[in-house]
């Protein structure tokens, strides 16, 4: 019970963090058709910007400024990079973002060095909020949940209550029609890209000190976010939300449940000995398969149902 409660909380936290990244990526992917490899790089930059700002000014300023910087960067990338690459088709766009992600990682490596920087939780939030069964839940976790819930509400209101939101929603499912109706689709593109980048930056600000801020964080987070987007389905924020939570729970529970296929077989009365075929595969405990599971789920989903959980069209 104790394990379950703590794991649910952790899974929820990780899932919300994932959703903050994946929501922007889903919008960008659905509307522009670009799978943005550099999305996780903006998440990383958000964390590093926040580290630099909070070191000099303070965490609360960083919370506002760093996402804005990322948003600005996103707008610049879209206007001066993607739009040019777009003339050569979707492949060029995809390659452009891939190259960008590569360069950002190397630049971060150059500027901040290969080891993690000491980006810490602000002291105001560094206390125990409450304890469950002896496990302390820090106030910062509550803060992350609060921020991500607020962001979720903000996106929801923006998309369902504002004119811009309607245009974006329409662009999700019928981009050509929106253009035919005389809306400025390039501006929608820039807005969505900048907004997604800002969200990724925000995730970096609050995730960077919760997890770790290092040059490898983009390449460890990026693939998981891809998985979420594909799993949830194109053009569906709700699918993206569900997929984020599923991935969050899968990742967390895979770490705490220490069982292997061999244990399950043993329960069924089949003993696994070193002589059994595939003994090594069967004896791998679940925590070690943890990083493996999301990709397995994604490949499976793409093969069985290419449009994802709640997707409206094929990837």
């Amino acid at each position: 019970m104790e394990l379950l409660l703590v794991s649910v909380l952790n899974g929820l936290l990780y899932g919300m963090l994932l959703f903050m990244l994946a929501s922007g990526l889903t919008l960008i992917f659905s509307i522009m058709g670009v799978l943005n490899f550099a999305h996780a790089s903006l998440y990383m930059l958000g964390a590093y910007f926040a580290y630099e700002i909070s070191r000099r000014v303070g965490f609360w300023v960083a919370l506002v400024i760093a996402p804005l910087l990322c948003g600005l960067l996103g707008a610049l990338i879209e206007t001066y990079g993607l739009r040019k690459a777009h003339r050569h088709g979707h492949v060029a766009e995809l390659l452009f973002t891939f190259g960008l992600a590569f360069i950002v990682e190397k630049l971060v490596l150059m500027v901040w060095g290969p080891t993690a920087v000491p980006y810490r939780v602000p002291p105001e939030l560094d206390f125990t909020l409450f304890s469950v069964y002896g496990t302390h839940v820090s106030a910062y976790r509550g803060f992350i949940l609060l921020i991500s819930a607020a962001m979720f509400a903000a996106i929801w209101l923006l998309l369902t209550r504002t004119r811009m939101g309607f245009v974006i929603q329409a662009s999700l499912s019928h981009p050509d029609m929106v253009a035919s109706l005389g809306h400025n689709v390039p501006r929608v593109f820039t807005t969505v890209f900048a907004g997604g980048a800002a969200l990724a930056g925000l995730a970096g600000v609050i995730g960077g000190n919760y997890l770790v801020t290092e040059p490898a964080m983009a390449f460890s987070m990026g693939p998981i976010v891809f998985v979420v987007v594909v799993f949830g389905g194109l053009g569906s924020l709700a699918g993206c939300f569900i997929a984020s939570l599923i991935m969050g729970f899968v990742q967390t529970f895979a770490v705490v449940l220490d069982i292997s296929p061999a244990d399950l077989l043993a329960r069924l009365g089949v003993a696994v000995t070193p002589a059994t075929p595939l003994a090594e595969v069967l004896r791998v405990p679940l925590p070690r398969i943890g990083p493996f599971l999301p990709f397995l789920l994604m490949v499976f989903m793409l093969l069985v149902r290419p449009r994802g959980l709640l997707g409206t069209r094929d990837t």
């Binding site: 693939p223 090594e280 493996f292 290419p306 990837t315």
Partner: peptide, 26 residues
């Protein structure tokens, strides 16, 4: 069976899968 972006993502996933497997199976 897939092409275009779906193909790109599956190959990406397979790459990650095999890399994860390489650290897992001694």
């Amino acid at each position: 069976r897939q092409r275009a972006t779906a193909f790109a993502m599956i190959t990406f996933g397979i790459g990650e899968l095999v890399t994860a497997a390489a650290t897992m199976f001694q």
